[in-house]
Simulated scan of single mutants.
Amino acid sequence: MKTAPLLENHNAPLVLLSGTLCNDRLWQPVTEQLNVSHVRCYSLNNADSAHALANELLDVLPLRFCLAGFSLGGIVALHMLALAPERIAKLALLSVNPFRDAPDNAERRRAAVREAANQGMTRWLTDTLWPRYVAPHRLNDTLLYRTVVQMAEESGLETLARQTEVAISREDHRQLLASFAAPTLILNGAHDVICTPQHHLAIAKAVPHARWITLPECGHFLPLEAPQQVANFMRNWIQESQS
């Protein structure tokens, strides 16, 4: 018997927000296994603040939607929650840092954009970000590496500059999670040195009813490192919203 697609005839489509230097390729291995009938993926490249990106998305999305954000996408998702909690049917946060950025990080982040411009995106990412992106045992995974580099090259330097400003200007919206009663999923990797387990513990403490899962063999890039596991957890999350 054929299984009906998740969210079929549902008024709340699945909205997926990508991270820094990411596009639809990030989510493709997950959505291929999810069997979701209504899904929209967004690359965050049209504004230089989380507040502006959140407003831009809320202007084009339906009145109700299921929202999942990865890394920078999770930051924007939390800003959307702050602006319009009644429109979010449920929330999933993957590899997210919920805190404000430290003021002394701003110049370091902007200097990194200049370094990427001088060195070229691939060389800069390979030398600075790739060693921190995935679990140690995946560092020699050529296919995974090529996917991450391809997304970065397709995103480009201008997008990196804008997304850097989003990270710098982000706000801490954890206090709003306490009153958010909809199903909430938190996913992180045990080897993530960018958005650490402690970052996700802070989110879990803010939303006690959330389901928090740490993937023991993953780093930061959960949707690419463990798409089957992520799809399984997200499938359960989607079905919970329909129960």
Score class of each variant (00 low, 15 high):
L6V: 03
L7T: 03
E8W: 12
E8Q: 14
N9D: 15
N11R: 14
N11W: 13
P13V: 04
P13Q: 07
L14E: 00
L17A: 00
G19S: 03
T20F: 00
C22L: 04
C22G: 01
D24G: 03
R25S: 03
W27R: 01
Q28T: 12
T31F: 07
E32I: 08
E32K: 09
L34Y: 00
H38T: 05
V39T: 00
S43C: 09
N45K: 02
H51R: 06
H51S: 06
L53V: 08
A54S: 02
E56M: 11
E56V: 05
P62W: 02
L63T: 14
R64F: 12
R64P: 05
F65V: 03
S71H: 04
S71R: 04
L72S: 00
G73Q: 03
G73C: 06
G74A: 07
G74M: 08
G74N: 06
G74Q: 09
A77S: 14
L78K: 05
H79C: 06
L83V: 07
A84M: 13
P85V: 15
E86Q: 13
V96K: 01
N97R: 07
P98A: 02
P98R: 02
D101V: 08
A102D: 11
D104V: 15
D104Q: 15
E107K: 09
E107N: 12
R108G: 14
A111M: 13
R114C: 15
E115G: 14
E115S: 13
N118K: 14
Q119F: 14
T126K: 06
T128K: 08
L129I: 04
L129M: 11
W130A: 00
P131C: 03
P136F: 01
H137P: 05
L139Q: 06
L139H: 02
N140T: 12
L144K: 05
Y145V: 03
R146I: 11
V148A: 12
V149P: 00
M151V: 05
E153P: 06
E154F: 09
G156A: 13
L160K: 05
L160H: 06
A161M: 13
A161C: 13
A161T: 10
Q163I: 07
A167F: 12
R170C: 02
R170M: 05
D172V: 06
D172T: 00
Q175N: 09
L176G: 06
L177R: 04
A178P: 12
S179K: 12
S179L: 15
P183G: 13
P183H: 10
T184L: 15
T184S: 14
G189F: 04
A190C: 11
A190S: 15
H191W: 15
D192I: 03
D192G: 12
V193S: 15
C195H: 00
C195E: 00
Q198A: 15
H199V: 07
I203T: 01
K205L: 08
A210C: 15
W212S: 10
I213E: 02
T214Q: 15
L224H: 07
A226Y: 04
Q228G: 10
Q228M: 08
Q229W: 07
M234I: 03
N236G: 11
N236C: 11
E240Q: 14
